[in-house]
Simulated assay, not measured.
Amino acid sequence: MNLIKTLLAGAAVATGLAGAAFAEEKLKVGFIYIGPPGDMGWTYEHDQGRKAIVEALGDKVETTYVENVPESADSERVMTQMALSGHKLIFATSFNYMDHVMNVAKKFPDVKFEHATGFKRADNVSTYSARFYEGRAVIGHIAGHMTKTNTIGYIASYPIPEVIRGINSAYLAAKAVNPEVKFKVVWAYTWFDPGKEADAANALIEQGADVIMQHTDSTAPMSEMKKHEGIIGFGQASDMGQFAPNPRVSSIIDNWAPYYVERTQAMLDGTWESTDTWHGIKEGMVEIGEMTEAIPAEVRASAQELADKLASGEVHAFTGPINKQDGSAWLAEGETADDGTLAGMSFYVEGIEAEIPN
């Protein structure tokens, strides 16, 4: 009888220890990055979001990341290895990971995936993005006021809706305050390549641009602008404040931290569901960096007013009348673009003379 009691007591202790170990098991969260966290741009801000998870949730989570992951089958291998090593939540932080995320998600239905800027979803795949075009309207407004050559340059990455949408938004805002403005677009065909980005900046300067925007991830364009007196630009994805007050006069900042913490907490709570999130200035996912005194006071004030109105919904970045580049009608007077059209935008608005490459 005593032996039975001893065995039962030992089993109870073992069960308790196993339960404690299970309770202490950390949620493993993985990130795949298109560039290095030290790019001080796109990947840097995603990594700040990863760090925010650790700060907010502490010992409940364990985060890992792999940087410089190509948007190819290599990303499938990285995500597969993460899933096999016990990661239950994986964030893929670049557009062209999309099909690879879907492929891996099918193989691991118990793993949850979050894909940045994509549009394909599944029961275990969510999508999320920011309304970057709102921020580009604000800096387009500033650019239109500040250009002296009436030529604004734009370093574009890939001809996908997100990038085309940003070019259109910035152009419309600049044109609204400066009818003489022209846009020059150079396609770098990369998200992160400092050499190509620097070359693109120089090409735009040679074409007469004295204000340059970018939809690429490194600070190389800023470094090139700094070599030329009178050239100004804007931080992309991150503040890039080390280049203030010139050439960086303001910035668009991607603040992923609240979303990352919220989605990781949902995993811990068992409430995670596949969703599509598209937040902007209102929700704080898009922020406007400090405007330096290089911008005239009245322009700082009007730019802030525009940002506030975009946040409140009083103003929409795409409000008619707006025609497509070929002159055909798109939005009537007072009409605003719907999210479906914006999400799939594949055309320039009237007035942009560049062509969208295939």
Score class of each variant (00 low, 15 high):
G49M: 13
A203G: 00
A21N: 03
K282N: 15
F243T: 01
I53Q: 06
L342D: 07
T93S: 12
N150D: 11
T271A: 05
T6M: 06
W256Q: 01
A156E: 08
E293S: 12
E67F: 01
I281L: 15
H87P: 07
S302F: 03
A176K: 15
D269S: 05
G140V: 08
K88T: 07
F95E: 04
S328Q: 07
W278L: 12
G10E: 07
G320W: 10
I160G: 03
S328K: 08
L306H: 04
V163Y: 08
A329F: 00
K112L: 03
E162P: 06
K107T: 11
W187G: 04
Q214G: 11
A11W: 03
H145L: 00
G166E: 09
K148L: 03
F31C: 02
A73K: 13
D59P: 11
T277Q: 09
K175F: 00
N358I: 01
Q265I: 06
G140E: 14
G334K: 04
D193K: 06
K282Y: 03
F91I: 02
G313I: 10
A337L: 14
W256H: 05
A122D: 15
A9P: 02
K184H: 07
I232V: 13
S346H: 11
A311Y: 08
K227R: 14
Y158V: 03
K196P: 01
E224R: 04
E25A: 15
F318T: 14
G241I: 00
G153Q: 07
T149F: 08
Q304S: 12
G30T: 12
H141D: 15
M213H: 10
N178F: 10
N124V: 12
F132E: 11
E134Q: 10
W191T: 02
N68G: 02
R77Y: 01
Q48F: 01
A329C: 01
T149P: 02
Y259E: 03
A116Q: 04
A170P: 09
Y154G: 11
W330R: 05
W187P: 00
A21R: 00
F132L: 12
V61D: 09
S94P: 01
D59M: 06
H215Y: 09
E76T: 11
N124M: 12
Y33L: 12
S346Y: 08
V66P: 04
S250F: 00
I53W: 07
Y348R: 03
D339A: 07
L268Q: 14
R121W: 04
W187V: 02
S223Q: 12
S328W: 11
I34H: 00
V69R: 10
A198G: 14
R50P: 11
Q325R: 01
F192E: 05
K324N: 07
A311E: 14
R248E: 15
V54A: 03
F192N: 04
L306Y: 00
Q265A: 12
S346E: 13
V61L: 06
R165F: 00
A343K: 14
P296Y: 12
S129C: 07
G135P: 14
K182Q: 10
V69I: 08
